[in-house]
């Protein structure tokens, strides 16, 4: 059972990493326009510079 001492923190850490990633994506407004992001990705002349279009 001693393995629990590091297995549980490991599970929590991995899950927590996923959670933090999700919250970060939410905060950076990546869930605001799901359609647009999908469409943009399909074009090879897509320009990342435009992302600072919003203030």
């Amino acid at each position: 059972m001693a393995a629990l001492v590091y297995l549980i923190p490991a599970a929590l850490l991995l899950g927590g990493f996923g959670l933090v990633c999700f919250l970060w994506a939410l905060r950076t407004r990546q869930f605001e326009d799901l359609d647009g992001a999908a469409w943009r990705a399909l074009h090879d002349d897509h320009d990342d510079r435009l992302k600072d279009g919003r203030d």
Partner: peptide, 12 residues
């Protein structure tokens, strides 16, 4: 689907 990149690309 092509509207978004065409608008943004052209205006840029």
């Amino acid at each position: 689907p092509s509207c978004v990149p065409s608008i943004e690309g052209t205006l840029a």
